[in-house]
Design a protein around this nucleic acid. Structure first.
Lengths: 254, 254
DNA sequence: ACTGAATATGTACGGCATACATAAAGCTTA
DNA sequence: TAAGCTTTATGTATGCCGTACATATTCAGT
């Protein structure tokens, strides 16, 4: 079955079984190499990148749809996933332009309305546990530095902006950051993560003090060997204490 | 024209000109008599209360629709209005039950889908400037104490809960409260507002100190006379300084 | 063994949040 | 008109938290 046919089937199925005029966009953040990253998809036979997204089945809750879409389109399963904004401008993109860029079927073959309202979710994932995989709609799935994104389809650059803002605010309230790191990490790595998200340098002495004062991470005896220079200690989140602290609401970070 | 006819027209018009399966709900907060209030509507010929809401025209942005709906259904114009969450559970209410309760036309006469995703907005308004007015769909429009709401239509009790939570968080970041007060107010009134929203008592000495330290209110020479006991000074927000402080981001309140 | 680059850590200062109690105002009423 | 009642207005002391800041240590590489 050729791509055009597949596309037509995909849309036909969506027209039939999904909520009309509504979609979901997922902004998936990862962290690696001292850089905050976003997972993007490149549509088949094009050079056009965009966020993973999809439609909501008529009998499916929006939250569940977001998880499903994430899974279907990137292989990522069940994780920190949070609705952050609904994008409802009357002209979020030019339908003709998109169809052309993506070699989509003639608009006439679709019942899809000329306008789509999109619900934005963002996810935080452990970079090292994700194997980006392209699906049948896409040629490529890979991480991009947040600081260096290409011009994206639809209003996806804007969507990412808003997600980033939300992430920054949330970081001040709870160490969401822990979803972005592997199980064991060093203090400098944690600091680098915070610096990247908050987009400003932090003092290592104060950072360490504060993080350890929160009482939700524990230092292991283990050190990370092999890198050049002094070996840093490894840390681990104490999930019990983290949850407890969350309930008591004393996890603000500024 | 009788009510049934009007209802049918209303829905026919919505089916024709609005986005299908999407709606807006507005939670309008006001403050009076040391109580946080929400504006609710009572549907015609029923005892059923709910939030003001409506649909989005096909060529209208969601934000604009929210403003329009607010205006149409409560007479309130242009104010602090902010999207806070999109409610997308697959079963947010029982369609049959609602139709019966509200004496809506036979579902068969409507193309409207059995499910609606709703975008929630909340507004903060100066209680003294609002004259609640019922529209053609409703018999009554009035303020209810947040602490003492009836059981509402749809999932509106839940929507209000979420709006309240959002309001509390926002209050810690910026004195949104000022939208809820008349132009001139006393320090105790301001404190009562904060206490109500945050749902805990505050120390008057510390509160006053902090509020004045923010540098965004000014004390007038004027005092509020006529009440029994000592006359309190009046204050006013300094909008210039407020905006400036907002930009610099130093308005946190904890 | 020396070098270079990163890691680890303590102290002093200032500001902000908190706790806490009393005097003054102004209407009421006796 | 004086006493009483209730609300308003306000200052100080304490401790914690955020911030600024510099040096010794580690360890791979040469």
């Amino acid at each position: 079955m050729d791509y055009q046919k597949q596309l037509q089937n995909y849309f036909a199925e969506a027209d039939e079984n999904c909520l009309p005029g509504l979609s979901i966009d997922c902004v998936i953040f990862g962290f690696s190499n001292n850089q905050l990253k976003v997972l993007l998809l490149r549509w088949k036979y094009t050079e056009e990148w965009g966020l993973p997204g999809g439609f909501i089945y008529k009998t499916e809750s929006v939250d569940v749809a977001a998880q499903r879409i994430l899974k279907e389109r990137t292989g990522i399963n069940k994780l920190f996933l949070q609705q952050f904004h609904t994008f409802g401008d009357d002209v979020r993109y030019n339908r003709e332009e998109i169809s052309r860029k993506l070699h989509w079927p003639d608009p006439a073959t679709r019942r899809w309305p000329n306008r789509t309202v999109s619900i934005g979710y963002f996810a935080l994932v452990d970079f090292s546990k994700v194997t980006p995989t392209a699906d049948f709609l896409t040629d490529e799935c890979r991480w991009w530095d947040v600081e260096n994104l290409p011009s994206l389809l639809f209003d996806h650059n804007h969507v990412i902006e808003v997600a980033l803002k939300t992430l920054r605010v949330q970081l001040s309230w709870q160490p969401v950051g822990y979803n972005l790191l592997p199980e064991k990490f060093t203090m400098p790595e944690l600091q680098r993560l915070y610096e990247t998200i908050l987009n400003r340098p932090l003092d290592p002495r104060n950072f360490s003090k504060k993080m350890r004062a929160l009482g939700i991470i524990e230092r292991l005896e283990e050190q990370r060997r092999g890198g050049a220079y002094k070996s840093p200690y490894l840390f681990r989140f104490d999930k019990e204490k983290y949850k407890k602290a969350l309930k008591e609401g004393n996890l603000a970070f500024s």
